[in-house]
Amino acid sequence: MTRDLQPLGMPVSSSGSSNAGVSDARTHARARRLRAEAAVWVVRIDAGRATRDDARLVRWCARSAEHQAAFDAASTQWQHADTLRAQPAVVAAPSAPSPNRRPRFSFTFTAPRAAFACAFAAAGIGLALYLHAPDFTTSAGEVRTVALDDGSTMRLDADSAVDVRYDEHERRVVLERGRAAFDVKHGDARRFVAQAAAGEIVDIGTAFQASLPDRGDAALVTVTQGRVAVRNSAGSVEAAAGQSVQYSDAAHAPNTVIVDTFAATAWQRGRIVFTDASLADVATVLNRYWKGHFIYVRGSAAALRVSGNFAIDAPGQALATLAETLSLRSTRIANRVVILSAQDPTDGQ
């Protein structure tokens, strides 16, 4: 017999005043969050990573009057800090910027700006973190398609992150984590560059995907249409549709490798395809798509070879099929952690 238990430390409200307290706390928390998000937008604009007519900022401000008010207040404070920049600096100030270019944000602060930035940090912003936070992310089990500002399309695999850095000269996207596929819009004079680890993929009229490794240190680029140039500081190579390029670090030039393109791009069609992969690698991939769960392969079972075609939205079903087909012992802990091991009880860890 089971029963629901009241979690320890969770008070049971017995009066209207308690509810009012909770409501006030939520209101204050929302206000703090809006101030922090507004501050991030102001810093991004000052750093040259966004503009006031950025579509994402416009949508954010349009969510409510509170959003717009928070942005206006943050802008006013930041502009006020700008007017005081002639004050003595805490450390040596950077060289004067060109009169034709708006000063970019720097961590070498004058006293007023330092105080303002510290106020942001005290509000829980974490200024440096936000400046480098990816623009688009996906969590485990989430695959999403993003329409970029130039009309290009980007598809993010689960547990991935991408930063978009478009300017007047170049369309650059930085793959911070996971895997992304790009269908590049042509007719734009700016070149399109995808940066992944120690290399760059330059579009030559194409659709391609780039992935950072789950394990190891090799990045992989697979071309599905047109051509790309893949390069790093050690060299470069061009690849056409159906070809793949791999590079490990800046000390080794990219090289063309043989990859099953159908299997490599299956995630874009909602499938996971394995061809003679180790069970350990299969588990790593399934963990990407199974939100809130973790699969661990124990002992000799990790080296078992697997080939199969599974739906990315049904990792639990894929796991059950693998356990049955390979005659594995499946042990669950709190219905979240799944341990796969060989049936032999003497199998070591």
Rank of each mutant, 00 (worst) to 15 (best):
H169E: 04
G226R: 11
A81V: 05
V257L: 12
N309E: 04
I312T: 08
S233M: 14
A38G: 06
F208P: 12
R144H: 00
G126T: 09
G151T: 05
S327G: 14
D157R: 06
S327C: 06
D313L: 08
G187N: 11
I295K: 02
F262G: 13
P134Y: 15
R49K: 15
V12H: 01
D54E: 03
H252Y: 05
A218R: 02
N19L: 02
H293N: 01
R191E: 06
Q77L: 15
T51V: 05
R155E: 05
S244L: 07
Q246L: 05
R59C: 09
A277Y: 14
F208M: 12
N287C: 08
R332V: 11
T265P: 10
A229P: 01
R35H: 07
G242S: 00
V22P: 06
S248K: 04
R190P: 14
V257Y: 05
I312D: 07
A181N: 03
D159C: 12
L148Y: 06
V230A: 13
A264K: 04
A196Q: 04
A55Q: 02
E238M: 13
M10E: 01
I125D: 03
D249E: 04
T275S: 07
A218E: 12
H252M: 06
A264T: 10
R155F: 02
I295Y: 03
W78C: 08
D188W: 05
A92L: 05
A301R: 04
I258V: 11
A180V: 14
A81H: 09
E168G: 08
A229K: 09
V184C: 10
S160T: 02
A263G: 03
A123C: 11
V273R: 03
L328W: 03
A323K: 07
A86E: 04
T145W: 03
P11E: 05
G270Q: 05
R288Q: 13
W60V: 15
A81Q: 08
A38C: 09
T346D: 03
Q68T: 07
A234Q: 01
D24A: 10
A277M: 12
G21V: 13
V184Q: 12
Y130C: 04
V91G: 02
A119V: 06
T83L: 04
A250W: 14
D249A: 04
V164D: 02
A73E: 13
L148T: 14
R30W: 04
M1N: 11
R26I: 09
T325F: 15
G151Q: 07
T138A: 07
R190K: 13
T206G: 08
A239T: 14
V174W: 11
T51M: 05
E324I: 11
D167G: 08
S17V: 01
T346C: 05
D344N: 15
D214S: 07
A161M: 09
L328G: 09
T331D: 09
A196K: 04
R113K: 10
L279T: 01
A89H: 06
A92Q: 11
G21M: 12
R35Q: 13
R271I: 01
L220K: 00
I204P: 01
T256M: 10
A50D: 04
R329S: 08
V162A: 14
A121L: 08
R3H: 15
A140T: 12
D344W: 10
F274Q: 03
D163Q: 11
R59P: 01
A38V: 10
V282T: 14
V193I: 11
A123N: 13
G216A: 06
W41D: 13
R271M: 00
D157G: 06
H132N: 13
E324G: 05
F274V: 00
